[in-house]
Design a protein around this nucleic acid. Structure first.
Lengths: 231, 231
DNA sequence: GCCAATGTTTGCGCTGTGTCAAAGATGACA
DNA sequence: TGTCATCTTTGACACAGCGCAAACATTGGC
């Protein structure tokens, strides 16, 4: 399958790589189509590959011992994921599930050290990427520690609109099927509470909901909810 | 000031470095004594140095816009911290405060790329360290999403006993001054709730409390509380 | 040895959210 | 076009945990 080289180039991890090295890198890649509902890898499985999402959308989930599920993050096109082995883990800590028809590039994890050796800047940039992810995680912890549910949901929806928004009519539509349950698992609450909150927002004209659908009509209004201390 | 080289060697980040390089590395270091209550760096300040804790104990905190504080993590001897610049940040995301008399090695951040160039394995190992930190962050998110306060506190206390425990009498004492407020800020609750929980535990003989003091008397009992689904 | 500062405990009332339950909506598929 | 599975909405209720407030304990300084 033909690989979109300019897309790969646009990723921080690869933007400084020489053309020759990039070709070599892509030469080892396998392109894989992932239909909706299929997992790229599953929690606990041996980490045999690392991946780059070219197209589509994934959600990375974890299941706790007592069966509760949370969404760790959403993978967008251009994101590297399934890093586990590079981080000294032998298995994947979560499951990566396609929520939209997706295409991912796959490399055997053994190649990671080789590529790093050949291209030291790679490791630096990769570390920066992980650093950002760490920061996001801390942001989430801070939110969960200090904010009540409605503000957390507002932040989560704004983030989604930012990362996966597509203009539609007068608003911005989240560009993949997303349920209240999903939003609940991203914010640490229940689908019932999310449903109530979204209903209230819809009554205020902030969003438009629907089955697995969410359109933000008033970004500023939502941002006010997210930032403002309640009065 | 004399630097304890064997302590430095014991840190994953440095264990594979050649002796010559290590000497060079340490040659550029400044050793700094940090009395209790003093900050090594403050949130928002320019990230001029990165650090290695040789002795003592720090807590890394963040303050939200609306003035609430959370404890991001506790820094133990041997931990690298104040990484910001290596992760492509120009300022420190939090404040590192000494909760015990501490000694830290300091390097100017400019040296980081040099050391990485000279020693590519360094970047790989550093990434593994960050990876672990990311995992811890996700663990915390998972706990905050799915567990009620008492279990979260139990987990936090067990973690502290593990990382900073010193045998004392029949129990394990957390080896630095820690307040209920601190524990609250680590688990996303209030000091009042923490106080109530600890009182209850003390009545059950699980722990022994005190002013800025905490001794775990029954690790297994606590672990049961942390793991077991309440019955 | 007393005082001030700081940390801890405890009671009480309130409310945000989870839990349980049941009734719509929506879309896929036959 | 009807059926079924899935998702969403809404109500009723309970309670964990927060906010507020006041008393109590410990420590260090003078």
């Amino acid at each position: 399958m033909k690989i979109d080289k300019s897309l790969v180039r646009s990723i921080p991890l690869f933007d400084r790589m020489s053309d020759a090295d990039l070709d070599k890198f892509l030469g080892h890649a396998i392109s894989r189509r992932v239909p909706v509902g299929e997992a790229v890898f599953e929690q606990g499985a041996a980490a045999t590959h690392f991946f780059l999402l070219l197209h589509g959308r994934l959600k990375v989930t974890q299941v706790t011992e007592d069966g509760q599920q949370i969404i760790v993050r959403v993978v967008h096109p251009g994101d590297l994921f399934g890093f586990a082995k590079a981080l000294q883990r032998s298995d994947y800590p979560g499951t990566a599930l396609a929520v939209a028809e997706s295409i991912a590039l796959c490399w055997p994890t053994e190649l990671w050290p080789q590529f790093v050796d050949r291209n030291p800047r790679l490791a630096v940039t990769a570390m920066q990427t992980i650093g950002q992810r760490l920061e996001e995680a801390h942001t989430r912890i801070r939110e969960m520690s200090t904010q009540e549910v409605e503000r957390r949901v507002a932040h989560a929806v704004l983030r989604l609109a930012n990362q996966a928004g597509r203009k539609e009519g007068s608003g911005v539509r989240i560009d993949f099927p997303i349920s209240r349950q999903d939003i609940a698992e991203m914010t640490g609450t229940t689908l019932h509470t999310v449903s109530r909150i979204l209903s209230a927002w819809e009554a205020k004209g902030l969003v438009e909901g629907g089955r697995q659908k969410l359109i933000v009509l008033d970004i500023n209004g939502l941002a006010a909810l997210a930032d403002h201390v309640k009065e």
